[in-house]
Protein backbone atom coordinates (compact mmCIF):
# COMPACT_ATOMS: atom_id res chain seq x y z
CA UNK A 1 0.00 0.00 0.00
CA UNK A 2 2.70 2.40 1.10
CA UNK A 3 4.65 1.60 -2.06
CA UNK A 4 1.77 2.60 -4.32
CA UNK A 5 1.29 5.87 -2.45
CA UNK A 6 4.95 6.62 -2.77
CA UNK A 7 4.81 5.95 -6.50
CA UNK A 8 1.87 8.31 -6.85
CA UNK A 9 3.75 11.05 -5.03
CA UNK A 10 6.86 10.52 -7.13
CA UNK A 11 4.80 10.65 -10.32
CA UNK A 12 3.20 13.90 -9.24
CA UNK A 13 6.54 15.42 -8.35
CA UNK A 14 7.97 14.34 -11.69
CA UNK A 15 5.11 16.06 -13.49
CA UNK A 16 5.75 19.20 -11.51
CA UNK A 17 9.45 19.16 -12.30
CA UNK A 18 8.70 18.67 -15.98
CA UNK A 19 6.32 21.59 -16.10
CA UNK A 20 8.89 23.73 -14.29
CA UNK A 21 11.47 22.73 -16.86
CA UNK A 22 9.42 24.22 -19.64
CA UNK A 23 7.51 21.20 -20.91
CA UNK A 24 4.01 22.48 -21.19
CA UNK A 25 1.70 20.53 -18.91
CA UNK A 26 -0.37 18.35 -21.09
CA UNK A 27 -2.53 15.85 -19.36
CA UNK A 28 -4.24 15.37 -22.68
CA UNK A 29 -0.90 14.71 -24.32
CA UNK A 30 -0.36 11.82 -21.98
CA UNK A 31 -3.38 9.98 -23.23
CA UNK A 32 -2.74 10.92 -26.82
CA UNK A 33 -0.61 8.43 -28.61
CA UNK A 34 2.53 9.96 -29.97
CA UNK A 35 2.01 9.10 -33.60
CA UNK A 36 5.15 8.43 -35.53
CA UNK A 37 7.57 8.30 -32.62
CA UNK A 38 6.53 5.01 -30.97
CA UNK A 39 9.91 3.44 -31.64
CA UNK A 40 11.77 6.11 -29.73
CA UNK A 41 9.11 6.75 -27.08
CA UNK A 42 11.09 5.02 -24.31
CA UNK A 43 13.73 7.68 -24.28
CA UNK A 44 11.45 10.69 -24.20
CA UNK A 45 10.00 12.36 -21.12
CA UNK A 46 6.39 11.16 -20.69
CA UNK A 47 6.96 8.92 -23.70
CA UNK A 48 6.25 11.80 -26.07
CA UNK A 49 8.54 13.49 -28.53
CA UNK A 50 9.28 16.90 -26.98
CA UNK A 51 7.63 19.46 -29.26
CA UNK A 52 7.96 23.17 -28.67
CA UNK A 53 11.61 22.93 -27.71
CA UNK A 54 15.00 23.13 -29.38
CA UNK A 55 16.73 19.98 -30.63
CA UNK A 56 20.41 20.07 -31.36
CA UNK A 57 22.10 17.94 -34.02
CA UNK A 58 25.83 17.73 -34.46
CA UNK A 59 27.51 16.44 -37.60
CA UNK A 60 31.26 16.30 -38.24
CA UNK A 61 31.31 14.91 -41.76
CA UNK A 62 29.38 15.49 -44.95
CA UNK A 63 27.92 11.98 -44.72
CA UNK A 64 26.67 12.65 -41.17
CA UNK A 65 25.26 16.02 -42.23
CA UNK A 66 23.30 14.27 -44.97
CA UNK A 67 22.04 11.71 -42.48
CA UNK A 68 20.93 14.53 -40.17
CA UNK A 69 19.05 16.18 -43.06
CA UNK A 70 17.31 12.89 -43.76
CA UNK A 71 16.44 12.26 -40.13
CA UNK A 72 15.23 15.85 -39.57
CA UNK A 73 13.10 15.66 -42.73
CA UNK A 74 11.54 12.46 -41.41
CA UNK A 75 10.66 14.19 -38.14
CA UNK A 76 9.40 17.22 -40.10
CA UNK A 77 7.05 15.06 -42.11
CA UNK A 78 5.47 13.95 -38.84
CA UNK A 79 5.33 17.46 -37.39
CA UNK A 80 4.00 19.00 -40.61
CA UNK A 81 1.29 16.39 -40.99
CA UNK A 82 -1.47 18.93 -41.51
CA UNK A 83 0.53 20.86 -44.08
CA UNK A 84 1.65 23.68 -41.84
CA UNK A 85 4.70 25.28 -43.41
CA UNK A 86 8.18 25.18 -41.99
CA UNK A 87 11.24 27.38 -42.30
CA UNK A 88 14.64 26.02 -43.34
CA UNK A 89 17.39 28.49 -42.56
CA UNK A 90 20.80 27.67 -43.88
CA UNK A 91 24.20 29.26 -44.20
CA UNK A 92 25.55 26.86 -46.82
CA UNK A 93 22.61 25.05 -48.23
CA UNK A 94 22.97 22.02 -50.42
CA UNK A 95 19.59 20.53 -49.58
CA UNK A 96 17.80 19.48 -52.75
CA UNK A 97 14.04 20.00 -52.42
CA UNK A 98 13.21 17.28 -54.94
CA UNK A 99 14.91 14.72 -52.67
CA UNK A 100 12.58 15.40 -49.76
CA UNK A 101 9.59 13.68 -51.31
CA UNK A 102 10.72 10.27 -50.09
CA UNK A 103 10.62 11.47 -46.48
CA UNK A 104 6.97 12.44 -46.76
CA UNK A 105 7.63 16.17 -46.80
CA UNK A 106 5.91 18.42 -49.34
CA UNK A 107 8.96 20.42 -50.46
CA UNK A 108 6.83 23.39 -51.48
CA UNK A 109 5.70 23.77 -47.88
CA UNK A 110 9.25 24.58 -46.86
CA UNK A 111 10.38 28.17 -47.07
CA UNK A 112 14.15 28.36 -47.51
CA UNK A 113 16.14 31.26 -46.12
CA UNK A 114 19.70 31.33 -47.44
CA UNK A 115 22.10 33.60 -45.64
CA UNK A 116 25.81 33.84 -45.24
CA UNK A 117 26.43 34.57 -41.55
CA UNK A 118 25.72 32.46 -38.47
CA UNK A 119 24.63 35.55 -36.53
CA UNK A 120 22.00 36.45 -39.12
CA UNK A 121 20.83 32.85 -39.24
CA UNK A 122 20.31 32.94 -35.47
CA UNK A 123 18.42 36.23 -35.71
CA UNK A 124 16.13 34.81 -38.37
CA UNK A 125 15.65 31.63 -36.35
CA UNK A 126 14.70 33.59 -33.25
CA UNK A 127 12.17 35.66 -35.23
CA UNK A 128 10.76 32.55 -36.88
CA UNK A 129 10.44 30.65 -33.61
CA UNK A 130 8.14 33.41 -32.35
CA UNK A 131 5.72 32.78 -35.20
CA UNK A 132 3.22 30.22 -34.03
CA UNK A 133 1.89 29.62 -37.54
CA UNK A 134 4.96 27.54 -38.40
CA UNK A 135 5.26 23.87 -37.56
CA UNK A 136 9.02 23.84 -37.18
CA UNK A 137 12.15 25.83 -37.86
CA UNK A 138 15.38 24.20 -39.02
CA UNK A 139 18.65 26.08 -38.93
CA UNK A 140 21.91 24.80 -40.41
CA UNK A 141 24.95 26.68 -39.16
CA UNK A 142 28.22 26.00 -37.44
CA UNK A 143 28.81 28.07 -34.31
CA UNK A 144 26.29 28.80 -31.57
CA UNK A 145 27.06 30.07 -28.09
CA UNK A 146 25.23 29.08 -24.92
CA UNK A 147 23.64 32.54 -24.53
CA UNK A 148 22.34 32.48 -28.07
CA UNK A 149 20.76 29.09 -27.52
CA UNK A 150 19.07 30.41 -24.39
CA UNK A 151 17.45 33.16 -26.43
CA UNK A 152 16.11 30.54 -28.83
CA UNK A 153 14.72 28.50 -25.95
CA UNK A 154 12.95 31.59 -24.59
CA UNK A 155 11.40 32.32 -27.99
CA UNK A 156 10.16 28.77 -28.28
CA UNK A 157 8.52 28.62 -24.86
CA UNK A 158 5.86 31.15 -25.90
CA UNK A 159 5.04 29.96 -29.37
CA UNK A 160 5.44 26.16 -28.97
CA UNK A 161 7.22 25.88 -32.31
CA UNK A 162 9.80 23.10 -32.53
CA UNK A 163 13.30 24.21 -33.46
CA UNK A 164 16.06 22.08 -34.96
CA UNK A 165 19.58 23.38 -34.69
CA UNK A 166 21.93 21.55 -36.99
CA UNK A 167 25.58 22.38 -36.19
CA UNK A 168 27.87 21.36 -39.01
CA UNK A 169 31.52 20.82 -38.15
CA UNK A 170 31.50 22.99 -35.03
CA UNK A 171 34.93 23.86 -33.68
CA UNK A 172 33.88 22.83 -30.19
CA UNK A 173 30.90 20.80 -29.07
CA UNK A 174 29.92 23.27 -26.36
CA UNK A 175 26.86 22.73 -24.20
CA UNK A 176 23.72 24.48 -25.33
CA UNK A 177 20.40 25.19 -23.68
CA UNK A 178 18.65 22.58 -25.77
CA UNK A 179 16.29 19.82 -24.75
CA UNK A 180 18.00 17.13 -26.75
CA UNK A 181 21.29 16.49 -28.47
CA UNK A 182 21.33 14.02 -31.33
CA UNK A 183 24.06 12.54 -33.46
CA UNK A 184 23.15 10.64 -36.59
CA UNK A 185 25.54 8.49 -38.57
CA UNK A 186 24.64 6.58 -41.70
CA UNK A 187 24.46 2.79 -41.62
CA UNK A 188 24.60 0.44 -44.55
CA UNK A 189 21.25 0.55 -46.26
CA UNK A 190 18.78 -2.24 -45.80
CA UNK A 191 17.42 -4.39 -48.56
CA UNK A 192 14.93 -7.15 -48.00
CA UNK A 193 16.35 -10.65 -48.20
CA UNK A 194 19.72 -9.22 -49.06
CA UNK A 195 18.73 -8.18 -52.55
CA UNK A 196 21.51 -6.40 -54.41
CA UNK A 197 21.50 -2.64 -54.82
CA UNK A 198 21.08 0.30 -52.48
CA UNK A 199 18.08 -0.08 -50.21
CA UNK A 200 16.21 2.34 -48.01
CA UNK A 201 18.16 4.59 -45.67
CA UNK A 202 19.29 3.38 -42.28
CA UNK A 203 20.90 5.48 -39.57
CA UNK A 204 22.49 5.00 -36.22
CA UNK A 205 20.50 7.47 -34.15
CA UNK A 206 22.32 8.46 -31.01
CA UNK A 207 20.29 10.52 -28.56
CA UNK A 208 23.17 11.76 -26.43
CA UNK A 209 21.26 14.02 -24.10
CA UNK A 210 17.61 14.47 -23.33
CA UNK A 211 16.18 16.55 -20.57
CA UNK A 212 13.86 14.46 -18.42
CA UNK A 213 14.43 11.32 -20.49
CA UNK A 214 16.96 8.54 -20.93
CA UNK A 215 19.64 8.84 -23.60
CA UNK A 216 19.60 5.91 -25.99
CA UNK A 217 20.86 4.58 -29.28
CA UNK A 218 18.86 3.00 -32.10
CA UNK A 219 19.34 1.76 -35.59
CA UNK A 220 16.46 3.39 -37.41
CA UNK A 221 15.38 3.57 -40.97
CA UNK A 222 12.65 5.37 -42.88
CA UNK A 223 10.30 3.52 -45.11
CA UNK A 224 6.72 3.99 -46.29
CA UNK A 225 6.47 7.24 -44.39
CA UNK A 226 7.31 5.85 -40.98
CA UNK A 227 10.32 5.03 -38.85
CA UNK A 228 11.33 1.41 -38.79
CA UNK A 229 13.74 -0.24 -36.45
CA UNK A 230 16.36 -2.80 -37.46
CA UNK A 231 17.94 -4.61 -34.56
CA UNK A 232 21.68 -4.66 -34.80
CA UNK A 233 21.93 -8.41 -35.32
CA UNK A 234 19.43 -8.26 -38.16
CA UNK A 235 21.41 -5.65 -39.92
CA UNK A 236 22.19 -6.94 -43.36
CA UNK A 237 25.50 -8.42 -44.17
CA UNK A 238 27.56 -5.95 -46.02
CA UNK A 239 27.46 -7.24 -49.49
CA UNK A 240 30.20 -6.32 -51.79
CA UNK A 241 29.57 -6.05 -55.44
CA UNK A 242 29.89 -9.25 -57.33
CA UNK A 243 33.44 -9.40 -58.28
CA UNK A 244 33.09 -10.35 -61.85
CA UNK A 245 35.71 -7.88 -62.69
CA UNK A 246 38.40 -9.36 -64.79
CA UNK A 247 40.01 -6.26 -65.99
CA UNK A 248 40.05 -3.08 -63.94
CA UNK A 249 39.43 0.13 -65.69
CA UNK A 250 41.00 3.06 -63.90
CA UNK A 251 39.83 6.35 -65.24
Amino acid sequence: MVGIEKKEIIKKLQQEILSLEGFKSATTDLQQEDIGFQLMADAFPRHTFPKGTIHEFISQTAACATAVSGFVSSILSILMNNDTPCLWISTKRSLFPAGLGYFGVQPDKIIFIDITKDKEALWVMEQALKCSALSAVVAELSEVSFTESQRLQLAVEKSQVTGFLHRRKPRRENTLACTARWKITPLASYTENGLPGVGFPLWEVNLEKIRGGKPRKWALGWRDNKFISIAAEQAPQQRTLKKQAVCLNVS
Partner: peptide
Protein backbone atom coordinates in the same frame (compact mmCIF):
# COMPACT_ATOMS: atom_id res chain seq x y z
CA UNK B 1 6.59 15.91 -56.33
CA UNK B 2 8.24 12.56 -56.87
CA UNK B 3 8.34 10.50 -53.70
CA UNK B 4 10.75 7.75 -54.61
CA UNK B 5 14.32 7.36 -53.53
CA UNK B 6 16.10 8.21 -56.74
CA UNK B 7 16.89 11.84 -56.01
CA UNK B 8 19.49 12.78 -53.37
CA UNK B 9 18.67 14.93 -50.37
CA UNK B 10 21.84 17.00 -50.85
Amino acid sequence: WSNNLNRPIH
